[in-house]
Design a protein around this nucleic acid. Structure first.
Lengths: 347, 347
DNA sequence: GCTCCGAATGTTAACGCTAACAAAAATGAT
DNA sequence: ATCATTTTTGTTAGCGTTAACATTCGGAGC
């Protein structure tokens, strides 16, 4: 075949106002048909090595970049997954997000996030709808919240959605850390130190994680036949832990305290320090999450570590399974680990 | 026009294997042309109210959802922005991400993130390329790192890229918090309390924020004509702050310490507590960031607060400006605020 | 030399949407 | 009523890609 003359020298790569080069442009420069270029790019079908080289040179010369919209239109695949995340800096959700992004990127998927400032049935449904409009191939809902779990009940059956920590009942695959088990470990650890009982500063009632941790704590106390004190309700913030600590100190109820997360544990430590109550001498404290700072609290905090990278990986795995037609009722449980530090140390 | 008979009752919305309904399907059900449906959806061109109602009903009935790929193909707009983020739980970058997502969503843009585990020239370039392949309309690089700043030098001139904290020299618009000013405020605050000098535990040398904070600290000391002690190098972690604190306590160099972030300040507090050094009596400590926990450290930490929501908003604003052909050399500076707490309180 | 076959390449037709223009219907002015 | 507008709707083409099928090319086998 006679090589066609190049149509007028190199085009300025992607200068403003110039349209991006297309397959056809590349084909023109390489002197082949656009299909051959497509084959070179996707590795579909056989191409003679010299032809391939010519095509690659043309791609390079023009700075060609495939048009993902056109590709998506014809293949029906966008290579994008959606994540509904709670807009918060809480250590857990943020870490989960990174874990997911990690796993997805390795598998060649892009991640689009749609964050939700206030968890709620409709806001989550909106976020899901929003993502579906962007033609994601599957959606992960980071749903630590009760309402999120409920929102998932309305999840479309014909579209792959999975949840992280989204409650037992949700009709979608769910990945969670075994919060109850973590709480059990912390509580048993405290009981084993000889305490009469263990107080609990719980997270907000409408968080599933808070419920499960409270449940694990309660069960453990009951199983050991000790008194179950009134739960103290916090909101995950250090402030709420601080207030809980103040009232505990004031009433002189000083056994052991299991806080629903590390931030609240920090507040407890602060309140006890102010009240002249020594940790671990007068009261022992444990938290949940193992934030990176926990080892440097005063005193260093005993806490329950969750492996969020693992959670992300499992989540992505379950989503791809579901996308391939897997079961809607799959479950994955990640087991947490107790990290013992000075806040529950010897007296 | 005679209304065409509906083509066989409601289609199962999006049952597996059934293709999604298209504009033409909706048009068939509503008895209009596909263009009329398009006009209803996009609000372009006039449509009689009754026609509109009929179309909306058909959309509802079929569960129609516009195909974003087809739309992007013809309009050349994807409605998506890319964010290159450092894969880390550091409070600042994570908060910035949420700030950006917020602003973008309000303006109707979706956000695709591409995270980078290790900042580096090539990894950032890869992430940018990765996002461009997904046809984002603009890219935000959260680039607190020196190498990130350098990677930006190679940013394409014909494509809108902006950076958050990306260094002065970058040939892209940059939004940053005035780190030098924040460091100056903290340092002056400490000097005003009568200290002979102020030590500084800096972040990693290859972080721009660490450099700027160090610079602000140094300048302030020099301006006040006091001795500039050897800077102590940390890595943002509480551990590194702890080690810095131990060596300071051991050498008995106890004036005031300005830590490059709150985590390191926490490590300092921990080390001082262990060494029996009282804060603020024996030494005063200030941090940077105002993480939510800072108010509950022992003692509560004086620190410099950055408004990340504002940073996100400004970043998005600068990106849209740039997308409309704005200047490559635009700059935006967000001013931080000193929060005084007990760690620099009266003795 | 001719046929046949696989390898390599080309041609055509969608994918679902919007832009641009064309036509029809409704409205108003005369 | 009649024509000029204006409003409303319809028709056609094309965005850049891949799927499906068609064609050409180079030998191998006879």
């Amino acid at each position: 075949m006679a090589e066609r003359p190049r149509s007028g020298g190199p085009v300025r790569a992607t200068a403003a106002g110039t349209r991006q080069p297309s397959l056809t442009d590349v084909a023109g420069v390489a002197g082949v048909s656009h299909m051959t270029v497509s084959r070179v790019i996707n590795g579909t079908g056989p191409v003679r090595p010299e032809t391939r080289a010519r095509v690659l040179a043309a791609i390079e010369e023009l700075g060609y970049r495939p048009n993902s919209a056109a590709r998506a239109l014809v293949t029906g695949r966008t290579g994008t997954l959606g994540v509904v995340a709670l807009e918060s800096n809480l250590y857990g959700p943020a870490s989960t997000l990174y874990g997911i992004e990690n796993a997805a990127r390795e598998a060649g998927y892009a991640i689009t996030i749609s964050s939700v400032s206030r968890p709620g049935r409709s806001s989550i449904a909106d976020a899901v709808e929003n993502l579906r409009r962007q033609a994601v191939e599957g959606i992960i809902v980071i749903a630590p919240h009760v309402t999120a779990g409920r929102a998932l009940e309305a999840a479309p059956a014909d579209f792959p959605v999975v949840a992280v920590g989204g409650g037992e009942a949700a009709p979608v695959p769910v990945i969670s850390v075994d919060q109850r088990d973590g709480a059990r470990r912390a509580t048993e650890h405290l009981l084993a130190l000889g305490h009469r009982t263990v107080w609990h500063v719980a997270g907000p009632e409408d968080w599933l994680e808070a419920r499960d941790r409270e449940l694990g704590w309660r069960e453990t106390l009951e199983r050991h036949g000790v008194d179950v004190p009134q739960v103290i309700r916090g909101d995950w913030s250090s402030r709420s832990g601080y207030e809980a600590g103040r009232s505990l100190a004031k009433e002189g109820r000083l056994d052991a305290v299991f806080a629903g997360n590390d931030q609240m544990a920090l507040g407890l430590l602060r309140a006890f320090a102010e009240a002249g109550v020594s940790v671990p001498r007068d009261v022992r404290v444990a938290g949940f999450d193992d934030v990176p700072e926990a080892a440097y609290f005063t005193p260093p905090l005993t806490t329950v570590r969750q492996d969020f990278i693992e959670v992300g990986r499992r989540t992505f795995g379950l989503l791809t399974q579901r996308m391939d037609g897997g079961d809607r009722h799959a479950r994955a449980l990640v087991v947490p680990e107790l990290i013992v530090r000075e806040s529950t140390g010897p007296r």
